Amino acid sequence: MEDQLNCIYRVINFIEKNYDEPISVKDLEDVSNYSYRNIQRIFKYSCGETIGSFQQRLKVENAYKLILYSKESLTSIGLEVGFANIASFSKAFKQHFGISPKAAKLSREMLLSEPDLVPITSDILLIPEIVYLQPMEIYYQSIQTDYNNEEIEWLWKRLMQNEFPVSGTEYFGVIADEPLIKPEINCRYDACASIQAKNKKLPSKAIFGGKYARFTHTGGYETIDETYTKIYSRWIFDSGLEFSHTPIIEKYEKHIDTTDNQEEQLTYILLPLK
């Protein structure tokens, strides 16, 4: 079972890196070490969708991120995420989200004002640091979640059952999907450590590599939504910067296991920039 889970992690990571390119049967067999028929079956059972559907979803969801956070034309965005032309891009986008790319671009600020998502009203303007970060290898476990704190805490407890060096290990959370644009807010969250566990071989992948806007959140994780609200409401559209469609990353500078006082916890929220 663990071999199958690590196989799924490898396939997901490979598709995320290459979603905008044609992926062959041989590519999938090489990365998974399973036959194409078996990896399709395992993937559908584990992820609830086919490999083809997953790749198509990544295309349109990454396109939506670019519509929200960049100044690129719709034609450029469609080509960038792997569609052959604007017609095929528009058709796939509308099938997935129920609106056209043009309508999504015109209503991007309205999206952020939906009451069940992130409110856009805040009196506080957060100013981030702009940082350049080198790629680094991390070791991780994943969960599908609506960012329920209890589910994320459960994932971290499961990850921390592994034996990591007390000194030198850094901890990260990778928000693989954009919760604002998912049809249902059920996104993948990766709990990550910078050093491989001593007692278990965890799957690995690279994160970072580029420019980020780094915001600081102090206090426990249960209040981090307040910081995200301030980011989305007062800064994200007026910054003059363009965002990348790569994942948002949280770095737990003072992790829950390193301090008993939640008020002393420190989290960096890293938004990728172009």
Rank of each mutant, 00 (worst) to 15 (best):
T121H: 14
I86Q: 02
S142C: 07
N149E: 03
F93P: 13
A84C: 01
K157T: 08
S122Q: 09
I138G: 01
Q134V: 10
N149G: 11
E163P: 00
L159C: 04
F89A: 01
A104P: 08
I138R: 01
S73E: 02
Q144Y: 14
L155R: 09
I120L: 13
N149R: 10
I120W: 10
E150A: 11
G78V: 05
N162I: 06
K105N: 14
Y147D: 08
L125T: 12
K94W: 03
E163H: 08
D146V: 06
L133V: 06
Q141P: 04
D146R: 14
T121D: 14
R108F: 06
P119K: 15
Q95P: 04
M136K: 01
P115V: 13
W154N: 10
V118L: 08
N148T: 06
P119L: 14
I77G: 02
F97T: 00
E153H: 13
T145Y: 12
Y139L: 04
F93V: 03
M160K: 13
K157S: 15
E129Q: 05
A87L: 08
V118S: 12
S113W: 10
S73G: 09
A92D: 15
R108D: 12
P135E: 04
N162H: 03
K94H: 11
I138N: 03
I143D: 04
G82C: 09
L79V: 02
E109S: 11
A84N: 06
I152M: 11
A87P: 03
T145S: 15
I77N: 03
T121L: 13
E151K: 07
S88A: 13
K105I: 06
E150H: 13
I124D: 02
S76E: 07
I127T: 00
N85C: 00
I152C: 07
S73M: 06
M160S: 12
S90D: 14
H96P: 06
R158Y: 04
D116C: 05
N85W: 03
Y139K: 07
I120T: 08
I130M: 13
R158I: 13
V166Q: 13
F93G: 07
